[in-house]
Nucleic acid binder design. Structure first.
Lengths: 338, 338
DNA sequence: CTTGGCACTCAGTGCCAGGGAGTGCCAGCA
DNA sequence: TGCTGGCACTCCCTGGCACTGAGTGCCAAG
């Protein structure tokens, strides 16, 4: 149905439209690309591509513009991902090396990504549920009030204060701390429930219910969804693409403020450790229907997600390359610092 | 120099311009406001107001528009702050009551403020340096690695892990913890340096240098500037005012991403527990030269700042009223929950 | 000091014609 | 069957032009 040449035409249309920002016509296409055929032939191909829904024309006497499905085909079958230049890679490396703690790593990453791609960057903090536990600290602040602090290998530190129904003396707390650390050290946080249950079993009967309650609260509050965080950068870049959005960038900005939604979108990305691209209406969010999301997991265990949001008319090969490279570097940095 | 009527004319110009978004002329002014004089007289007054720099005309045959100094005069001498309606106050109250923890309070506050004013809201987390210390916890994670956790009365919890040069046994740590808590309980974090010094004095000589070092690091890292945080909401509202900004909202968005700058601006506000207004070029930030910042401290000890950023052509009376009201409510909520 | 009158300026609008880019269709050719 | 050149057609965009209306500054009179 679509022979080689028609695909080349589609590729050429996408590439030209991305760079010129203007509907591209048959003549210009024949000139700029060496397709070996005349404009008239290209016109025929374009008519067919339009029938198939890959391109469309804004008005009768204008050139063609790719549709969402056109971009999809381009990304899936036509694009060859641009690897970053050596200089770019070096710049990324040195920029990220300088980070002093986790907050700094995330901040630097998101700014870097925004700057490299010239679009809006989104970085999720390393997810606790996929992190390994490095250390658990339990402190009795008063007889019935405990503070639990969990430190992950990615450097995140989370604490909770919780009240318990029975008095726990210092030695019990100390024992609990030791047992918990022994049980969970190096485990994923998502494996903590079982480990916690085993710990509760081993404790003296009279405190067992209390201990179980503590552990339950702890696991639940630490592994809960509420703990996921994202950071944005480069929203100002949206204003530069103002003309790419029908009407206004207002709905886009609104959607970006809903971090919960962003987290969901990032989480929906398909294959781990591979760059996922979601184009226009493929994103199940009203305000983002004229944007695309290029995202990836990072870290060995897919501990977090990062990505870039921009107009559907974006430089997919370049963006994919950048996202992939940054994700790799961040993963490496996180491992080194753990 | 400026008699009563000229001031009334200025007030009328500001009010009309804010609502209509269009340069206002002498005739329209005479019709819409009962100034008791003819358009010709108003024209004379306007010419004078223009000489004095309070208003300006975009082009020869257009109406007048207030300048930054015009708004300044309006805010200082002409505006009567709109108190919020009873219904609005109730809505604010109930919306904020539902918050479960500090993060939630801040998030709700910033969204509320953005929604009520229809502009960009900025809320600073309660500053640690102005918070009182509720509890300090020191935990030996390993012989030479301590974790210090400080909990403030505003509900903020901050922790640091630090390495020390000498081994500290458990009893020393316990003693240190007790002494520190005794010394700093209820004090402002900014008063901690002296308290810490006293504690160090009282410790056994052999650990004194180590203890002093610990305390210094602790105070410094907790009270450092890096710990201040701000949260934004309503950036999408900027797009609605797109026409108010010369060229693009891009520089504004850029400035808003620099949280350090926002913190500085909030901190520069003059009188505590009073609403501060900074108009256009009064803000020492390039990108914000066509915006105004209406801000206030909140909490009894002025523990944090919050504010609203919008185009210089904003409804100052309404915005000031909203900021004041929200600041009061947040202060109250924080006290209740402490 | 205020007022009405008057001439002047100038942004904004509607209209129209011309240019240009692009398309679809068709007939001819390999 | 598929490619090509030619041709008529569509429609956006631009620039010129006249017109309108809001608004101003100035002046002479009350």
């Amino acid at each position: 149905m679509l022979d080689e040449r028609k695909l080349s035409v589609l590729r050429a249309i996408v590439e030209d439209y991305v760079t010129t920002r203007e509907p591209v016509g048959s003549k210009a296409l024949a000139e700029r690309h060496s397709l070996g055929v005349s404009p008239a032939t290209i016109r025929n191909d374009m008519a067919l591509l339009e029938d198939e829904g890959y391109i469309t024309q804004p008005h009768t006497s204008a050139g063609r513009v790719p549709t969402d499905t056109g971009y999809r085909l381009f990304v899936d079958r036509l694009a060859t991902i641009k690897p970053l230049s050596a200089a770019e890679r070096r710049a990324i490396g040195t920029f990220l090396e300088g980070a002093v703690d986790l907050d700094d790593i995330v901040l630097r990453t998101v700014r870097l990504l925004a700057q490299v791609t010239g679009q809006v960057a989104v970085v999720q903090y390393p997810s606790l549920t996929r992190s390994q536990v490095r250390h658990v600290e339990i402190v009795a602040m008063s007889p019935r009030r405990l503070m639990v602090v969990v430190i992950s290998t990615t450097g995140r530190v989370e604490q909770r204060v919780l009240d318990v129904a029975v008095d726990l003396d210092d030695s019990t707390v100390a024992e609990l701390r030791n047992r918990i650390n022994e049980a969970v050290d190096g485990k994923l946080l998502s494996e903590m429930p079982e480990a916690a249950a085993a710990v509760a079993e081993a404790m003296p009967a009279e405190v067992r219910p209390a201990v179980a309650a503590i552990l339950a609260t702890m696991v639940e509050s630490l592994a809960g969804e509420g703990e996921e965080r994202v950071v944005l950068a480069g929203t100002a870049n949206l204003a530069l693409f103002g003309t790419d959005f029908p009407g206004s960038i207002q709905p886009v900005l609104e959607a970006l403020e809903e971090h919960v939604i962003l987290l969901r979108l990032l989480g929906e990305a398909t294959a781990p450790s591979q760059v996922s691209v979601r184009i226009g209406h493929e994103l199940p969010v009203e305000g983002l229907s004229s944007t695309s999301l290029v995202s990836s997991t990072y870290g060995a265990t897919g501990v977090g997600h990062l990505g870039v949001i921009g107009p559907t008319r974006m430089d997919y090969p370049g963006t994919i390359g950048a996202v992939r490279a940054v994700a790799q570097y961040v993963g490496r940095i996180l491992e080194e610092s753990s």
